[in-house]
């Protein structure tokens, strides 16, 4: 279970850190205003600073609501059931991206679609296999054959000489 308080705090801390990283990167170049206008670092510097300041603002607003015991702020915005559903959808996506990096996009596509349909969707073996292989084949034809763009490939495609 996730309450609004903690979600707001986490996101605001993240954007605060992001703003500070940008500020730091911008100081590599001048951040002042010279004869030909703002120096290269000026825009990112002040925008990053603004992001950090506004993130602090969100933090202050969030926690002052907590202190005033505002009901809305301690409300649950993601219950156990929702969290379970999101995670069970997200983890296979993460697996898909990892597989893409390791074994290439075709193998990852087939494995991910098959897993999602057979294991998570409860479809039959035949339907799952047909859909996952069919999708991979369609991508191959459309992207590599028609548009001549090479997708990421791994050792298994190499075996087929692709």
């Amino acid at each position: 279970m996730v309450t609004r308080l903690w979600a707001e705090t986490a996101v605001a801390l993240f954007t605060l850190a992001y703003g500070l990283v940008i500020v730091r990167g911008a100081t590599e170049f001048g951040i002042g205003w010279d004869a030909s206008g703002p120096e290269p670092g000026a825009f990112p510097f002040y925008t990053g600073l603004l992001v950090a300041a506004a993130s602090l603002g969100t933090l202050v607003v969030t926690w002052s609501k907590r202190l005033r015991a505002d009901r809305a702020i301690s409300a649950v915005i993601l219950d156990g059931e929702g969290l379970r559903r999101v995670v069970s959808f997200f983890l296979p996506i993460l697996g898909f991206v990892l597989l893409c990096a390791a074994l290439g996009m075709y193998v990852a596509t087939i494995a991910y679609l098959f897993f999602a349909m057979r294991v998570q969707g409860g479809f039959g073996w035949l339907a799952s296999l047909a859909t996952s292989f069919g999708a991979a084949l369609t991508f191959y034809i459309v992207i590599e054959r028609i548009f001549l763009i090479q997708l990421m490939k791994g050792p298994i495609e190499a075996l087929f000489g692709l």
Partner: peptide, 19 residues
């Protein structure tokens, strides 16, 4: 059904991102 189209969209999104 969403359990087919959802994962398909995921794949299309990532392949699209790569292209």
């Amino acid at each position: 059904p969403f359990s087919i189209i959802g994962p398909l969209i995921v794949v299309i999104c990532f392949i699209g991102a790569y292209t």
